[in-house]
Amino acid sequence: MNELVTLSQGSGGKQTHELIRKVFAERFVMDMPLTDSAILDCTCNTMAFTTDSYVVDPLFFPGGNIGKLAVCGTINDLAVSGAQPLYLSASFIIEEGFALCDLEKIAGTMADEAQKAGVKIVTGDTKVVEKGKCDKLFITTSGTGIMIDGRQHISKGTEVKPGDRLIINGSLGNHAIAVLGARNRLSFSTPVVSDCASLNRLTEKILMNCSDIRFMRDLTRGGLAGVLNELADMTRSGIIVNESSIPVDDPVRGLCEMLGFDPLYLANEGKVLIVAGPGEATKVIGILRSDDLGRESEIIGEITDDKRKTVILSTSAGGKRILDTPSGVQLPRIC
């Protein structure tokens, strides 16, 4: 039987409670009975807090689904700020007629991901809207975590100096191309799988073992080019990047060549840019490469004292050009 979500499951009555209990609360191991607020223990002075909404078409793609994105994305926003993520909230806007089994699958993935990352989903909300009023399913997650002393500069980039090295933890563009491939039913001879993953254990390992981490940021929308331009702007410094040292998997490269996309602008969901002091870069690479999420880590460039705040790409062809801020969406070329 293909059970579907109905409007009555969003009405706040018995069916709503039933849906929340069966689909979400049991999987997320929430404390019963459910109350209006989650009461959290906290032993720190400073906290990090973030929120993000997730929409993706299609909801399921190679390497993940919207639920995995919603958990990993918010965990990563906390992790790259230098925080230790602890608690998440999760709100669901569901289109009437959505398959219940898909909702269960997505909730199951969220529970698994949260458990793997050592994070608890402690509160949430569910709304069901009429058919056509939303596109299948939207999820919003918020997250909070402990801010360890001495890490406040990580998200602000205030300690970044000329000569610092730029490091990324692997190949770019896999998430965007996996989703694009699933959306347009493109077939690849080598499948492209989204890199969607929680990075908090990896970033924690780096921050625990290295004293000279100057900046971190996850490379989501806008890709590497977007983050580098923000960084140049924030720190009022220049950046030089070597194109040939930036890892991009062959199937992603091939499709980018075909469609006229630039992988440096494509979204990732498991990639982080780390800026480290020049003396520490090799150590960072060593730690990253010993972890499954960082096997293909590379030093890709460095901070310069160029006051024009420009990001320069030293091309693999031996030329130089500006790597500009992304504008609009990348659209496939015509010929």
């Binding site: 630039d262 693999s316 062809a317 030329g319 050009r321 070329r333």
Partner: peptide
Amino acid sequence: GHTSAIHRFGIPS
């Protein structure tokens, strides 16, 4: 396509 490739690879430089 050539205009784009010329500038993407930094050929003028």
